[in-house]
Design a protein around this nucleic acid. Structure first.
Length: 984
RNA sequence: AGGCCGGUAGCUCAGCUGGUUAGAGCGCGCCCCUGAUAAGGGCGAGGUCGGAAGUUCAAGUCUUCUUCGGCCUACCA
């Protein structure tokens, strides 16, 4: 007898693999990218799925300016997960990325560049300027392309669509011409920021705010018609007096731009302000004669009246009535001007406007729709009221390019300038303000005047003040061709994720004004229209088709310069007297709104209509809408079947990322530190329907999840070492535990496809993560380690286990491939090494119906409950050192009589568990990972005995289980060793 | 300022048409194993559902208000 114990380690079948535990993603990801590039994965996928039904996620083009950020990374990763998922579901998911290339930001950068070289914009020929813009956009496009590819996004990167391709530019022009032909396009006007000094339109980004001395005035607008249902709310001096006072009163306004008074068309008020009529009783003594008279009545906001009275030198007054001004009709304050030429005979209505406040002024806002954004909006949105009052709702063009009154104004004002545009006093007040003041005094409608310093817009370049002035602009009508109705109907038919998107875009489209599509800019697609002497469009002419063909041919050939640089005669050789080319360019939203036309519809290998548009929630007003409107205007239907909107990336507290808060994270940093895979996991496990939080801790959680899954997969690779399909065991011959795992696979298979169609990636990820951790690692693998390591190599149980692990492996890797595209390839290649194949060329596998076994699942649920109860009982013994490994324990459990079904079930399972070479009741012990488990009926009770303390038990030197019997190892292990030695 | 939306354990998420002591995983704490080992396993402690009021026999789940956050629009005549 010797104390030396035999070491059975070499007779075990331990998992074996070279697969590294540590991923080294930042280094390895680029290697996989290079591999896919080398084998031409994208092309192979297209080749492989030729003829399959297409799934088209049409890319919303990012703007080709600057590096990508978390938002753009999130967006592209989401798209990639959707595309890969549908590809593996059996579609041909052909993804063509795109870029938005035209627009002001690039124009601005390029202008800055030229300025740096001492050349002003005016010195640079248009074609040279545009050519540089083109280069600039192309440069950033290349940068972003590499950044997107780094994230693992698969797509046609060698042939993306670009709004600045010549063909795209021509197609965009063609789309506009189609709209023009249907009569949905019209020329109107709108106030824009304008610098009279430079005679050019300015964008918000081109103005700076600086102090300016301005003339402020209070002006009287006499009540013209108060009989129509004016609304007296209070009458402190009696009802009749109140009514009289109103009839003989003036509404007061306050303005710092007197020159806009001749362009006045309305007065705005607010329903949330209280207005009263005041009678002047006494005036201040002053060296200047006041412009108010005793007995005059004024209407103004109550809370501002005292300040008005002070400005108007009114010493005392009586409040005659509180009034709602809604239905008052006023006269223009210049109507009584001797040389008015009847040009102010129109009624001046009161319009409710949300921009009106009682912070300063009078509580009324003088409204000149041609000279203010608010004024314009109020005017346009009250179109119906104006028409009911017999007022022409057109916005008059009251000022020309030089900032001088046009000839629609009375003669005395014509040609007067607001701002001096040349000479020493350039930028200072011109002749308009003094002349307007003079005219107001003549009419007796000036109450007070003074000076004021205010912050106001100035041109970035000339530093001269900027005005707002109505200019001719092009619009697509929401109503003329029924565009609004069509769009609303299409929204109803579209599938939205989340569903609330429908409501959001729906109300926007229902309420939005006509689409202003013209810009007075350089870097963009031209509005290729030729306008006749009477404002008619060339598209109405008989030779329109021929003209269009020439225009489009020119743009196709050399891009937008084909329009700008070609003389009119080349397009319109005949009858061109008085015709001129439009020089405006298109709103860039029209460009991107046309991507479905020049990408999807233009290409033969893509279907015309997208299955999905997927962008951030800001695109309800942007691309989702511009695409919808453009497509409805031309084709009468939406360009998409579905729209998915995701939230914005915010920091861990839910605050938006900003440089000033210092809470930004860049995709590049995450790729370098953790790997793009971690970003992809973060994307998949977040809820895109709301804002997505990101921060160090959150990324770390994704990294931890990655490690766990990688190890689970690694264990499977090791366990499957040397496995061959010929070892597979038939379903019918499998132990219950194996059947249960297959049940789980079948269950998940069904859930998985539904989740993909619902784009519910977080559900997929959490399901698979839980499968790895809970079902596999902590339960199935933990239990089956014994069989895998210790059973005879050819035992049915061991072979069944490996059969099942192989099934799990195949499915888990493919299910995870759309999310963890790098690691699943690595894992896949570890089992299926191939020079030219990829896990991404696989399809998701079906699961046989027969695998679904609900009652088995319920049974296994009961087993796990029991297991949990037993562990709870073992735990104290472990803590006090009585038991170390659970294999040292014998468990005796008794269950209540009404829980007998469980016992029955176990009993049935015992009898079916033929594959165990031992007594079948040990199956339960296997499940619990104890050496012995006895079950009986009685009071609910769990007893744990330490077998090491009983001397009739021996610890098996091979399996570490305690058993009763002869020898140093169990009979099962003895059989295994025998078989091993025979084989070896 | 207006429109739309969101706020469940430290973190990421489940909680369907209102109905038993609000769930999961991660993380954390303690313990075990050393034949998945810069791995693996077990047990445990953490929320009253942003706040308030209301409807109801009953609310995380409905209504109103409020607070915080996000997107979009508007921003001084």
């Amino acid at each position: 007898m010797t104390d030396e114990k035999r070491d059975y380690r070499d007779t075990l079948f331990l998992p074996k693999t070279d697969f590294p535990m540590r991923a080294g993603l930042p280094k390895k990801e680029p290697e996989w990218l290079a591999h896919w590039n080398k084998i031409g994965l994208f092309e192979r996928l297209r080749e492989q799925s030729k003829g399959r039904e297409q799934y088209i996620l049409h890319d919303g083009p990012p703007y080709a300016n600057g590096h990508i950020h978390m938002g753009t990374a999130l967006n592209k990763i989401l798209k990639d997960i959707v595309n890969r998922s549908h590809q593996m579901l059996g579609y041909d998911a052909h993804y063509v990325p795109g870029w938005d290339c035209h627009g002001l930001p690039i124009e601005w950068k390029v202008e800055e560049e030229f300025r740096g070289k001492g050349r002003s914009k005016d010195d640079v020929p248009g074609s040279e300027f545009r050519s540089r813009c083109r280069e600039y956009a192309a440069g950033w496009l290349d940068v972003q392309r590499e950044e997107f590819k780094r994230l693992g996004v698969v797509g046609e990167w060698d042939n993306p669509y670009k709004t600045m391709n010549f063909q795209s530019e021509a197609d965009i022009c063609a789309e506009l011409l189609k709209i023009a032909k249907t009569g949905q396009l019209y020329r109107g006007s709108k106030p824009i920021m304008w610098s009279p000094v430079e005679q050019t339109a300015l964008a918000e980004a081109e103005v700076e705010y600086a102090d300016r001395k301005a003339t402020q005035i209070y002006v009287k607008f006499p009540v013209y018609d108060a009989d129509k249902a004016f609304n007296i709310l209070e009458w402190p001096e009696g009802e009749e007096k109140a009514a009289n006072a109103i009839r003989n009163s003036s509404v007061l306004i306050w303005t710092t731009t007197p020159w806009t008074i001749p362009a006045n068309r309305a007065v705005s008020f607010s329903d949330s302000i209280s207005y009263s009529v005041y009678r002047v009783d006494e005036l201040e003594e002053s060296e200047f004669a006041p412009w108010a008279c005793v007995g005059e009545n004024f209407i103004a906001a109550e809370q501002l009246w005292e300040s008005i009275a002070k400005a108007g030198l009114i010493k005392s007054w009586s409040r005659m009535a509180r009034v709602s001004p809604r239905n008052l009709i006023l006269s223009h304050p210049l109507k009584s001007m001797s040389d008015a030429e009847g040009k102010y005979d129109f009624p001046v209505p009161l319009l409710e406007g949300s921009h009106v406040t009682a912070d300063a002024g009078t509580g009324f806002v003088h409204t000149a729709p041609s000279h203010g954004e608010d004024d314009y909006v109020v005017w346009i949105s009250n179109q119906k009221k104006l028409e009911a009052l017999g007022i022409d709702p057109i916005v008059p063009m009251t000022m020309d390019d030089a900032g001088c009154y046009t000839d629609i104004m009375p003669t005395r004002f014509q040609g007067l300038d607001v701002i001096r545009t040349s000479g020493k006093k350039r930028g200072q007040d011109g002749k308009a303000n003094p002349e307007v003041l003079k005219a107001l005094v003549e009419c007796g409608n000036l109450l007070a005047r003074g000076m004021l310093t205010l912050r106001d817009a100035h041109s970035w370049r000339s530093k001269a003040p900027v005005i707002r002035r109505a200019t001719p602009q092009w619009f697509i009508s929401m109503s003329k061709g029924g565009l609004r109705d069509k769009a609303v109907a299409q929204i109803e038919k579209t599938k939205f994720w989340p569903d609330r998107g429908r409501n959001r875009i729906g109300t926007m489209v229902a309420d939005r004004p006509d689409w202003l599509i013209s810009r007075q800019r350089n870097w963009g697609v031209p509005i290729t229209l030729i306008v006749g002497p009477d404002g008619e469009l060339h598209t109405e002419r008989d030779d329109a088709d021929a003209i269009n063909a020439r225009i489009l041919a020119a743009v196709e050939k050399v891009g937008v310069d084909g329009w700008f640089e070609t003389p009119l005669e080349d397009f319109m050789p005949d009858n061109n007297e008085g015709w001129s080319k439009v020089t405006d360019i298109l709103d860039v939203w029209f460009d991107s709104g046309s991507t479905h036309a020049f990408c999807l519809k233009r290409r033969d290998d893509l279907k015309d209509r997208a299955d999905l548009y997927l962008e951030g929630s800001d695109q309800h007003r942007g691309w989702f809408q511009s695409s919808l409107l453009e497509s409805c205007a031309v084709y009468g239907e939406a360009p998409y079947d579905g729209v998915l909107t995701h939230g914005f990336v915010v920091d861990e507290k839910g605050l938006k990322m900003s440089k000033s808060l210092g809470n930004t994270m860049s995709p590049e940093d995450i790729s370098k530190q953790y790997g793009a895979e971690i970003m992809r996991i973060w994307t998949a496990s977040s809820d895109w329907a709301n804002d997505l939080k990101i921060g160090r801790e959150i990324i770390q959680t994704s990294a931890d999840a990655y490690r766990k899954m990688r190890n689970t997969l690694r264990y499977m690779i090791g366990a499957l070492d040397g496995y061959d399909e010929s070892d597979a065991v038939d379903y019918a011959d499998m132990p219950a535990l194996e059947k249960w795992v297959l049940h789980r696979l079948a269950e998940i298979t069904a859930e998985h496809e539904a989740a993909i169609r619902d784009h519910d990636h977080k559900k997929i990820f959490s399901t698979l993560f839980n499968l790895c951790t809970v079902d596999l690692s902590a339960f199935y693998f933990d239990i089956r380690k014994d069989a895998l390591y210790c059973d005879p190599l050819n035992s049915t149980r061991r072979r069944a286990c490996r059969t099942v692990i192989n099934e799990v492996f195949q499915r888990l890797t493919t299910w995870l491939a759309p999310i963890m595209c790098f690691t699943m390839e690595e894992v896949w290649q570890a089992r299926h090494p191939s020079e030219d194949k990829s896990v991404h060329m696989e399809l998701f596998r079906d699961a046989p119906e027969a695998w679904l076994d609900k009652s088995l699942d319920a049974f296994m649920g009961r087993v796990r409950e029991t297991r949990s109860q037993i562990y709870e009982a073992i735990e104290p013994l472990r803590k006090d050192g009585t038991i170390r490994s659970s294999l040292e324990a014998r468990v005796d459990i008794s269950v209540l009589g009404d829980d007998m079904h469980c016992v029955d079930y176990l009993d049935i399972d015992f009898k079916n568990e033929y594959s165990s070479p031992e007594d079948p009741k040990d199956t339960l012990a296997d499940y619990i990972i104890v050496s012995e488990c006895n079950m009986s009926v009685g009071d609910e009770e769990v007893n744990v005995t330490a077998l090491s303390s009983l001397n009739n038990y021996t610890k098996c030197e091979r399996s570490w289980k305690y058993f009763k019997g002869e020898g140093d190892i169990t009979p099962r292990d003895a059989a295994a060793v025998k078989a091993f030695e025979a084989g070896a």
